[in-house]
C-alpha cells in the first residue's frame, strides 16, 4: 500500500493553500502539515517526526488546533495531511497549557537531556512537579524520550531490525533482544544521528566500533590499505558494496573515502593525459 492510497490523493499532486496562524502558504495536497511548517519556518515543537520515516505521532508536542466550523480541534501536525483551505493555529491557551504539561513529563522522563531542558525552557518550563527518572544503569543515560526514530530508521531505512521497543507502558525501553550484543548490527550509526536527544552512545576505540547503548555490540571496522585509518564498519561496507552494480574494483573498495577520492582524482589526470593503463572501466 502506498501513502497515496492511504490519503486518497491519486494522480498528479495539486497545489493548495493552507492557513497557519492566519497567514496563507501554498503546499502540495496531501503533504504533512508539520513539513510545511518546518519549510516555512513556523515554529511547532516536535520530537518524533522525520520526513523520510513513516509518521508516528508519539511525542504529542506537535499538536495544533484545526479550525473548522467555528470550532478548534487539537490534532498532531505530523499526521495531518494538507487539504485546500486547511486552517490551523499553532498556539492557543489550551495548546500551550497542555504543551507545558507534556514538557514537564519529558523533564521527568529524560532529566539528563540538555535538548529537552532547553526545549522546555523555550516554553517557560524550567521545573517539573513529577518524580524524575534516575536509572544509574540506563544505557541511554536517562535521555531517551521513546520517540521511536532510531527504531524506525533501523527498520525502515537500514532494514536492520537490530533494535526494537521492549516491554510496554511505563516500562518501555528501546533495546536489542535480551539487552545483549546483536550480531546483525551494521554499526551504521543512523540511530544515533537521528536521535533528537543525543541519547545513543557509540564509541570507536581502534579497530572496532562499540554500540554502547545497544548491549555493547561490537562491530569490526575496516582499515584503509593506503592510510591505515579505521574508517567504517566492515559489515556495513560489505552490505553497501553488495548493492552497487556494477561492483567496485577490489582495489578501491577497501580504501577510505579520503584515499579513494585522491586515488580517483589521480586516475582522472592520467586518463586525461592519455595514459589508460591504470584506468578501470567500472568506476
Amino acid at each position: 500500500m502506498t501513502d497515496e492510497e492511504v490519503c486518497g490523493t491519486k494522480g498528479a499532486l495539486n497545489q493548495v493553500t493552507v492557513t497557519i496562524n492566519g497567514r496563507e502558504y501554498s503546499a502540495e495536497e496531501g503533504e504533512i502539515l508539520l513539513g510545511v511548517a518546518i519549510r516555512e519556518n513556523v515554529e511547532i515543537p516536535h520530537l518524533c517526526y522525520e520526513a523520510s520515516l513513516s509518521p508516528s505521532g508519539a511525542c504529542r508536542l506537535c499538536m495544533v488546533g484545526v479550525r473548522k466550523k467555528g470550532k478548534t480541534e487539537m490534532t498532531t501536525s505530523c499526521t495531518l495531511r494538507v487539504t485546500e483551505g486547511l486552517d490551523v493555529v499553532t498556539e492557543t491557551p489550551e495548546i500551550l497549557r497542555h504543551r507545558k504539561m507534556l514538557l514537564e513529563l519529558y523533564l521527568a522522563e529524560a532529566p539528563k537531556s540538555e535538548v529537552i531542558k532547553s526545549l522546555a525552557a523555550r516554553y517557560g518550563v524550567t521545573k517539573t512537579r513529577f518524580f524524575k527518572k534516575a536509572e544509574p544503569a540506563d544505557p541511554l543515560g536517562n535521555k531517551c524520550v521513546l520517540c521511536g526514530l532510531c527504531v524506525r530508521v533501523c527498520n525502515e531505512i537500514m532494514g536492520g531490525g537490530v533494535i526494537s521497543f521492549v516491554n510496554r507502558g511505563p516500562y518501555t525501553v528501546v533495546a536489542t533482544p535480551f539487552f545483549g550484543e546483536n550480531p546483525i548490527c551494521l554499526g551504521c550509526g543512523a540511530c544515533a544521528q537521528v536521535c533528537p536527544t543525543h541519547a545513543i552512545e557509540i564509541e570507536n576505540p581502534g579497530d572496532e566500533r562499540i554500540m554502547t547503548s545497544w548491549g555493547k555490540t561490537r562491530v569490526k571496522l575496516r582499515q584503509c590499505p593506503v592510510c591505515g585509518k579505521y574508517y567504517a564498519p566492515d559489515i556495513l561496507a560489505e552490505t553497501i558494496y553488495a548493492k552497487i552494480t556494477p561492483p567496485l574494483s577490489q582495489q578501491i573498495q577497501d580504501m577510505c573515502p579520503d584515499c579513494r577520492r585522491k586515488y580517483l582524482a589521480k586516475q582522472e589526470v592520467l586518463v586525461k593525459s592519455g595514459d589508460f593503463s591504470g584506468g578501470n572501466n567500472h568506476v
Binding site: 511525542c59 504529542r60 507502558g169
Partner: peptide, 9 residues
C-alpha cells in the same frame, strides 16, 4: 502500550 508520553508517563 507506552507509545505516547501523556499515557505512558
Amino acid at each position: 502500550c507506552g507509545k505516547c508520553i501523556p499515557c505512558r508517563e
